[in-house]
Amino acid sequence: MAKFTGDTAKKILANEINVQTLLHQHPEYQEEVLRELSIMKGSYDLKRIQAMMNKYTSSAKLAGNLIYKSGFNEKTVNTFLPNIIKARMALHLLEHASIAASAQSPTKNVRFNLWDGMVLQRLLFSKGFERKPVSLGLFNFCWKFVLNKKILMPLVNQKGIYCFYSKALIRELIRLIGDKKCLEIAAGDGTLTRFLNDAHARCKATDDYSWEHYITYPDFVEQADAKAALFKYTPEVVLCSWPVPQNTYEKHVFKTSSVKLYIVIGTRNPAFTGDFGAYNEAEQFTMELNERLSSLILPPSNENAVYIFRRKEH
């Protein structure tokens, strides 16, 4: 069994050692986590996934508190740090399971008919799976003629696509950003940043590349985790679209002194997107669920949400 120092514990608690490195360095913990998760037996049930995520999150918080209170005592570190490592591994795997679950559909293996495929390809994509800003009026007109609406998102989820951006939404985001220095974290294929920069914003796209099996990262998306990117670019505005549930990176946005505005595009359901724990603990920021902007995400859904966090003035 591995022995840990206080310095290693501090790095792991600060998320300075990424999950991929932990998986490589501690295969024995990975095997243990996989055995624990095997009770799911490939059944991607969102409630079960959420319960497992809550279990590992609670375990990690308890272990972290005990380590901090001990002053990083070596015995305490070696007793409880494995719980944190296993929790990070489990949450990483469960995040993937959550995405798989959201992509599950009774229409699995069903393809669009020729009409739906033609309409949606021209409406939503410039080529292949490369998204384009969508005219809201044109979408509203064409959407009513699509026969199999429910299979759109499960099909494109498999390509790392969780929403489409209307031209109206991009205009509103440009208005909010203005001439401020902007950073997108967990940017995926960089679609949002690409749209914003085409409209003359100053936005930098970054991602830790942990979803390479889902997403093809273009060159302009810089490989960097959120904490490192925030430190490097000291942005005034930060964006994140569809942050994974109970992630470990959004909390760093609220700890970055340069950030005045944080915009999250996602859902109202904590099981699907966002670190709502970090949102609720962000005492230096106001939090607004903007209904008008939420209505500009496509396809329309009562679950769509745009959250705007503004730093409080003192």
Rank of each mutant, 00 (worst) to 15 (best):
M1C: 14
A2R: 12
F4Y: 15
A9T: 07
K11G: 02
N18K: 06
G42A: 04
S43I: 08
Q50T: 13
M52T: 08
N54P: 06
T57Y: 13
A60G: 01
K61A: 11
L66E: 12
L66K: 04
K69L: 14
F72W: 13
N73Q: 13
T79M: 01
K86Y: 07
R88N: 04
R88P: 00
L94P: 07
E95I: 10
E95C: 09
A100T: 05
A100H: 06
S105G: 01
T107A: 09
L124M: 01
G128Q: 15
K132H: 06
K132W: 02
P133S: 00
L136R: 15
L136C: 09
L147M: 15
N157E: 07
K159L: 10
I161V: 12
Y162I: 05
E172T: 04
K180W: 06
E184F: 10
A187P: 12
G188Y: 11
T191D: 04
F195I: 04
D198Q: 15
D198E: 07
K204L: 10
S210D: 05
I215T: 13
I215S: 09
V221H: 02
E222L: 15
E222C: 08
K227L: 01
Y233R: 15
E236T: 05
P243Y: 02
Y249C: 14
E250S: 11
K251Y: 02
H252P: 12
F254H: 04
S257N: 09
L261A: 05
V264G: 04
R268Q: 06
N269W: 06
G274K: 01
F276Y: 06
A278R: 10
Y279V: 05
Q284E: 07
M287D: 14
E288H: 11
L289H: 15
N290P: 01
E291A: 15
E291R: 15
S301G: 01
E303G: 02
Y307V: 00
F309D: 00
R311S: 03
